[in-house]
């Protein structure tokens, strides 16, 4: 069996589903359960990563310092991961995260803007940290473009590189092509991070592994924005049956997922109307809450808002566009 590394961003990406309100006790409980299951990397933070607590996306209930020290204490075997978006977090945030004992640092950029990560990847390499670069909203670039950006990221010092299907737009063949192109172009582990807007997250993750991805992301109960991410406790046994070795204990993994459902979320994600629309429109799933709220206030159809955001090519982080789009649709309706 071929080894594959499971990377668990439940305590980071899941934050989008609960407006970044996870408590320190919830973080500790899940981190302990994930550690007991032998999950290799447990990522923690605000949904948009280090330094990203904001009105634009949501202010976190717990500071970065408390999140990192809580999860660090809870992990005995698993490595701790953090996420950072240049322009949102800064090198100071990276320094603090390393001081807290972060083992893996992912720098996220929109899939065509890898040069935004040059400085931070260079800094992390000089600190000897294991830095990854993830290309977000990767449905907005071709396989060849993504491979080119992956090569650039490795040149900046990334020791892992890959793609996020931030809008949950991909079908398995899209993933195979893109992961295949990247795996052929770089000699570092390739990452795939799926979203479930069109019900494809597990199938897409298997396609990624078969195309050469060595690091696959999954969240307990799929905890994440909108329709959620790849469901971790489904992903792991499916990969094992397909012929990949994860090193994760099934029962302990199922227990961690039970804990997550009970303690982290009001209800597990479902593929609701807006998640389907955001997947089709190619818009970041994390826009769901602000779109719903702004649409309800203005009396416009939130599905129209998603398609208009897609038309304007909104990228992750551009939640401020929602106010304009809603105002525009309200005007058009009059």
């Amino acid at each position: 069996m071929k080894p594959v590394t499971i990377y668990d961003p439940t305590l980071r990406d899941g934050q989008h589903a609960v407006k970044h309100q996870l408590s320190a006790a919830a973080l500790r409980g899940y981190a302990e359960a994930a550690d007991a299951a032998g999950i290799p990397v447990v990522e923690v933070g605000h949904g948009n990563g280090l330094g990203a607590s904001s009105l634009q996306v949501g202010r976190a209930a717990v500071s970065d310092d408390v999140m990192l020290s809580t999860v660090r204490e809870a992990l005995r075997h698993s490595r701790m991961g953090v996420f950072m978006l240049p322009g949102w977090g800064t090198s100071d945030d990276l320094r603090k995260a390393l001081a807290h004992g972060a083992d893996v640092v992912r720098v996220g950029v929109h899939c065509t803007e890898t040069s935004l990560a040059e400085r931070h990847l260079d800094f992390l390499a000089s600190e000897g940290a294991e830095a990854h670069c993830v290309l977000m909203m990767s449905h907005m670039a071709s396989p060849a473009e993504l491979a080119g950006h992956a090569v650039t990221a490795v040149g900046y010092g990334a020791r892992g590189v890959g793609i996020m299907d931030s809008a949950g737009h991909f079908l398995p063949s899209d993933v195979s092509e893109r992961i295949g192109a990247i795996a052929e172009a770089v000699d570092v582990p390739v990452i795939f991070h799926g979203h479930n807007n069109l019900g494809m997250a597990v199938a897409n993750s298997v396609a990624a592994a078969e195309a050469g991805a060595a690091i696959i992301d999954g969240c307990a109960r799929g905890f994440g924005a909108g329709a959620g991410n790849t469901q971790l406790e489904v992903l792991v046994p499916v990969l094992e049956r397909t012929g990949y070795r994860t090193g994760i204990d099934l029962y302990a993994l199922l227990d961690a997922a039970e804990f997550a459902e009970r303690e982290l979320m009001p209800a597990p994600p479902v593929t609701g109307s807006l998640s389907i629309v955001s997947g089709l429109a190619g818009v970041f799933s994390g826009f769901k809450h602000p779109v719903l709220e702004a649409s309800a206030r203005a009396g416009v159809d939130p599905r129209d808002v998603f398609f208009e955001l897609g038309r304007r090519q909104a990228i992750a982080g551009q939640e401020d566009l929602i106010v304009d789009v809603v105002a525009h649709l309200r005007e058009v309706a009059r």
Partner: peptide, 23 residues
């Protein structure tokens, strides 16, 4: 206070914009 910068790859390019959130 907090400052955030997004770089948009939209084509045609999006006009420079700034949102101010205040409590």
């Amino acid at each position: 206070t907090k400052a955030i910068l997004n770089i948009s790859p939209a084509v045609p390019p999006a006009t420079f914009r700034t949102a101010i959130h205040a409590v």
